[in-house]
């Protein structure tokens, strides 16, 4: 009996809380908006199921205590069985299908041809980002040339002219509204590139180069967190996604190139 009230109180509290609060940071592009909508849809559907099921559980505890009489003798009801089986199937599979477009926009559509390409290299426990520079070409790399203390985490070969103007940064800076294509690789163990405001997450797997494309429409600084256990410094593996105006980005790029001279 106490349990019935406890379950009811918990259910009402949780339902109300989830209805009126959101802990998501504001999204910064169309994908985030679509994501939030799919989340809300799922929240409403599961919320209704949650509410009804928990309230019913409380109700049977409240109503059907032992009073010395015999319970109802029933082994079930096939019509009800069929009803809730098919309802659950339609609802659950329907939800997945509705989310398909979001998944497709991330994984099944190619990035626009004019996307800005940035290489990502993750290692224990730091991020590095490489821009091709004015020539638009990435320089040749060699594992043997990797030297973190000398600021060459990619192992760029100095002898290759295409590599002379490559810019390497520990934060990822992108112009606002520009399609970006990250080519992500990990050097030692599995890492994961996660920016909350983009509503995007992707593992970086050694031996694979995994594409990740997005566009950020709101200028600002957003934290990048590693979201796949990578070792003792996992919790420190932080970087920043900085979305800047076209002009600021050009200025930053110029500064980086000037420093290289």
């Amino acid at each position: 009996m106490i349990l019935a009230f406890l379950v009811w109180a918990f259910t009402l509290f949780v339902t109300a809380y989830f209805m009126f609060t959101t802990w998501f940071p504001p999204g910064i592009n169309a994908h985030a908006a679509a994501y939030d909508q799919q989340f809300r849809l799922t929240l409403v559907i599961t919320g209704v199921i949650f509410f009804l099921a928990q309230m019913a559980l409380g109700w049977v505890m409240f109503k059907y205590g032992d009073d010395g009489k015999r319970a109802e003798y029933s082994h079930g009801n096939n019509r009800l069985e069929v009803l809730w089986t098919s309802a659950a199937a339609v609802l659950f599979v329907g939800l997945v299908l509705m989310g398909t477009t979001i998944w497709a926009s991330v994984h099944f559509t190619d990035p626009p041809a004019d996307s800005m390409v940035i290489e990502v290299n993750a290692k224990q426990f730091a991020w590095s980002f490489r821009y091709p520079g004015p020539d638009g070409k990435f320089g040749r790399t060699d594992l043997k040339l990797i030297n973190d203390s000398a600021g060459n985490p990619f192992g760029i070969d100095e002898k290759d002219p295409a590599g002379k103007d490559d810019v390497v940064s520990s934060a990822v800076k992108v112009p606002v509204g520009k399609p970006i294509l990250l080519k992500m690789a990990a050097r030692d163990v599995i890492h994961n590139f996660f920016v909350r405001e983009l509503r995007l997450k992707q593992d970086l797997v050694p031996g694979m180069i995994i594409p990740y494309h997005f566009q950020a429409d709101t200028p600002g600084k957003y934290e990048v967190a590693c979201s796949e256990l990578c070792g003792l410094g996992h919790h420190q593996m932080r970087s920043v996604l900085e979305v800047m105006s076209e002009a600021d980005f050009a200025k930053w790029m110029q500064e980086q190139l000037a420093q290289k001279q």
Binding site: V60, M61, Y64, G68, R70, A71, G76, L80, E81, T85
Partner: peptide, 18 residues
């Protein structure tokens, strides 16, 4: 889901000993 519904169905009309 079937299991959950059946559990609640079992309790419906029961004489529960807590």
């Amino acid at each position: 889901a079937i299991k959950t519904f059946n559990w609640i169905g079992t309790l419906w009309g029961a004489k529960i000993r807590f």
